[in-house]
């Protein structure tokens, strides 16, 4: 699999590696997918990178590759920001080859990472018709998570037809941020757009929301989909090739 902009892959790895340290990458003719739960089984991440999004891609037979995201992250940190990246696995090999090429083709780096033997449990992700779908700037969402984490470890997300309200409370007191739905949309990427079938109010652990925001560099927008008694879906699209979707169980007030 070859990417002209290796930085896309680095952003994917940085977006995943705090939530899951290692994961099984499923490679087929259609592209690369990954599905993994965090260690406490409260969040799940689903990655899709379709073959047509790569500059070149070939997969002669389906492979499940156990990869340490922590190690992969370290190796990718050596990549130049404009480098192209090629990842290859030879048949019956126990390692993955990561090749980086500088833009002006004068520097070639090659790394080999040992593969891990992981038992990959595959869960079915049901198509859900959410009560509410919010689109907003990913930087704005990251900022809100950071600000709300000052006040508490849970964030209540309430949606109304006017907008969406994030609130947190704790020992210090409480705080809330309300975003009004954008009316005159000049730049889609900066708009707050809410499609609401019915209002929802759900509480989530801000620690996880902040971890999800590590994937924000992938896309200027983030999608938040909510329904009562349903895991939150937090989606960052990967331009022209797929997405990273995080799912988080709501805090259920015992």
């Amino acid at each position: 699999a070859r990417l002209l902009h290796g930085s896309i892959f680095a952003k994917v790895i940085e977006g995943l590696r705090e939530l899951v340290n290692e994961a099984t990458w499923e490679c087929s003719g259609n592209g690369i997918t990954l599905q993994a739960m965090d260690s406490s089984h409260v969040a799940l991440v689903s990655l899709v990178m379709r073959s047509e999004g790569f500059e070149s891609y070939r997969c002669d037979r389906n492979m499940s590759l156990g990869i340490s995201l922590v190690s992969m992250s370290k190796v990718l940190k050596t990549m130049g920001k404009d480098d192209s990246l090629t990842i290859r696995v030879n048949d019956d090999s126990d390692s993955i080859i990561i090749a980086m090429e500088s833009q002006n083709q004068d520097k070639f780096a090659d790394y080999e990472l040992r593969l891990m033997d992981l038992d990959s449990e595959h869960l079915g992700i049901p198509d859900t018709d959410y009560s509410c779908a919010i689109k907003m700037p990913s930087s704005e969402f990251s900022r809100i998570c950071r600000d709300m984490s000052i006040m508490g470890d849970s964030v209540l997300i309430c949606t109304t037809k006017e907008g969406v309200k994030f609130s947190a409370k704790g020992d210090l007191g409480q705080g809330s941020i309300r975003l009004v739905q954008t009316t005159n949309i000049e730049k889609e990427e900066e708009a707050v757009i809410i499609e609401m079938k019915e209002a929802v109010a759900l509480t989530f652990a801000v620690r996880y929301l902040s971890m999800f925001c590590k994937a924000a560099p992938l896309s200027p927008q983030v999608g938040l989909s909510l329904s009562e008694d349903t895991p939150l879906m937090c989606e960052f699209k990967i331009a022209e090739m797929g997405h990273v979707r995080f799912y988080l169980a709501p805090k259920i007030e015992d």
Binding site: M37, S40, H41, V42, A43, L44, L123, G124, I125, P126, T230, P231, Y247, L248, A249, P250, K251, I252, D254
Partner: peptide, 14 residues
């Protein structure tokens, strides 16, 4: 805990 079970049930049921 409840949340873990909740998440697993949501995806498992499918």
């Amino acid at each position: 805990n409840i949340q873990q079970q909740f998440l697993l049930n949501f995806f498992k049921q499918y």
